[in-house]
């Protein structure tokens, strides 16, 4: 694996999005793409494949989780198969332990499909990036295809290591948050929220001087929050993969530097071992970042809600923690 994934002089070369081999976009697209590059990024293929995969896997899981016929007795309530049980455990854990304390029962029920779709979509894309499809394709094509392509990639890589991809998903979250806030608060309530809330707007007149400052901060925060979502996911994916590529690069660098075979072998084994450890960490990070993206979206949705409905003290406490985490 060490040699398979070995990178060259710059570990970022392994991480960045690349154009699909032989696939070109029409030139007329360049205007709205804001680029003259006619290539179609390989992340597009990964996203499409991940979308299909997440639909297929969750559809299978839904069939395993759904209540069976009455003839199955009590067994009909039990999820069948490991996939169903895995998805069920995640859904129940996220819903009951994370979302309900933050959003309340009614809003969790309303936004659960969106938030869980977001989580599983990101999870599949993140995990997919840990599989060395791009490297395998490139190596196989170079060695076995007649003529040997210099850069043969049709499919593979981490799509969430592309800021445009995470930005697109964050834009959806931004739209959902704003639609929710307008529907929940109305334009007046939304504006009041941006001005610091009713306590400040209807509070002592001396505090009116603070309102413009708060408005500017809140208005900018409205955009900064989803941008931060996008950058956080992008940076974590790029960071982890860069670290792994850097570790794997050591063996190749030793070989290129003309070191003795035993030294190259020792460095390769050591760096490969560390890379393997980092790979496990990356699996965890894939789950964690998908969760954080989804959870912060839930927190941002709940901050734009009426706080006197069905939200008890527990909610406010959870809210406080969540917001604090979001700022971190």
């Amino acid at each position: 694996m060490n040699f398979l994934l070995a990178s060259g002089d710059n570990p970022l070369g392994h991480v960045v999005d690349k154009p699909m081999y032989g696939v070109k976009a029409p030139e007329s697209w360049s205007a709205w793409r804001f680029t003259q590059d006619a290539g179609v990024p390989v992340s597009c293929a990964v996203i499409i494949f991940s979308g299909l995969l997440v639909c297929f896997l969750l559809w299978r899981a839904a069939k395993a989780i759904q209540t069976g016929p009455d003839s199955h007795g009590t067994e009909r309530f039990i999820a069948k198969g490991r996939l169903g049980q895995f998805v069920e455990a995640i859904v129940v854990g996220l819903r009951d332990q994370m979302l309900v304390p933050v959003m309340g029962e009614a809003q969790t029920r309303r936004y659960l499909p969106f938030l869980l779709s977001l989580f599983f979509f990101l999870l599949v894309v993140n995990l997919f990036g840990l599989l060395p499809f791009a490297d395998i394709q490139h190596m196989l094509a170079h060695n076995f295809v007649k003529g040997g392509a210099e850069e043969f990639i049709l499919f593979g890589g981490t799509a969430t290591a592309n800021l445009m991809v995470t930005g697109g998903l964050a834009a959806i979250c931004f739209a959902v948050i704003q639609i929710h806030s307008f529907r929940e608060l109305g334009f007046g309530g939304w504006l009041e929220h941006l001005c610091g809330g009713s306590d400040l707007v209807r509070g002592p007149k001396g505090l009116y001087l603070v309102i413009p400052v708060i408005f500017v901060v809140e208005f900018l925060g409205m955009f900064i929050k989803p941008i931060a979502l996008a950058i956080r996911l992008f940076a974590n994916m790029v960071g982890g993969h860069t670290l792994m590529a850097t570790l794997l690069m050591f063996g190749m660098m030793a070989a290129k530097g003309g070191l003795a075979t035993w030294a190259v072998g020792t460095i390769s084994v050591a760096s490969g071992t560390f890379a393997l450890i980092i790979l496990f960490l990356e699996v965890f990070v894939a789950f964690l970042q998908a969760f954080i993206f989804m959870f912060l979206t839930a927190v941002f949705i709940s901050t734009m809600s009426h706080h006197d409905e069905e939200h008890g003290e527990d909610h406010h406490e959870a809210h406080g923690h969540a917001t604090a985490e979001a700022h971190h």
Partner: peptide, 10 residues
């Protein structure tokens, strides 16, 4: 790299 194609695809 600014390219809206991946964003729109996503």
């Amino acid at each position: 790299k600014v390219d809206t194609l991946p964003a729109l695809t996503a």
